[in-house]
Design a binder for these strands. Sequence first.
DNA 1: ATACAGGTCTTAA
DNA 2: TTAAGACCTGTA
Length: 268
Amino acid sequence: MITLELEHFSLAQIAASGQCFRMTKNEDGSYTVIAGDRCLRGSQEGSLVEFDCPSLKELGFWVQYFDLEEDYGRFAAAVDERDAYLSGAVRLGDGIRILRQDLWEMTASFLISQNNNIARIRRCIENLCRSCGEKKCTKDGEVFYAFPQPEALAGLADDALMDCNLGYRSRYLVRSAKMIVSGEVSLPAIRQMNYPEAKAALLKLYGVGEKVADCICLFGLHHLEAFPVDTHIRQVLDREYPDGFPFGRYEGFAGVIQQYIFYKELVG
DNA sequence: ATACAGGTCTTAA
DNA sequence: TTAAGACCTGTA
């Protein structure tokens, strides 16, 4: 067990912010997060955060995962005080972070997310992991399922994942997995690209459009300038910023601002 | 019953 | 290049 004192960090807000679909609240108020083939339990009282972490090396992974080296105060401080809507959003979601999640996991997860609601997205992903992921065990003996690698999906029939209730997204996921395994779309290469290059490369995947590509860039590649526009964000832009959103003011980290807005629309 | 979820693809003008 | 329609599923 390791205790850290952290500013601008909230497990509850991160869990509710809709970027990580495998983070759940436990009955005792703690949170369990599964990333790739790792599982962590964490709890929080104010700024004191406890991670149930077996080793320093393991802690290192979660430090980068939660982006703890970054000062999110600088993002909040950049917000225009006269912008009442955004100021409110930042106050409300002060503990949000852009997690550094796995590129393939984000690709698959946001393929599933399209035209879908968050509760069902979670179930779909859990079904997928149970069906195709490796069965794992924490040191405490808790069973969980790792996120399946693309190789585990590439050989399936287009409609095989309808059993996981993915619906028509089944073929998006299977075909994209094939393209990745074959090297037609190279994830290692995409990791080396800048934002516009990476987005263009991701758009070649079947089922990946503008919005999903931006989510993958933001959450799977940590390109903070990516600004995914979904139905909620679209409504906010039309309602609160009829004369245009001040992207120039938030150049380089508009995606962080997007998360504050998304969170406000979700919980507020 | 109908609309809506962190949209994208296909097809037709 | 843009615009309608179709699309799995579950909840309100």
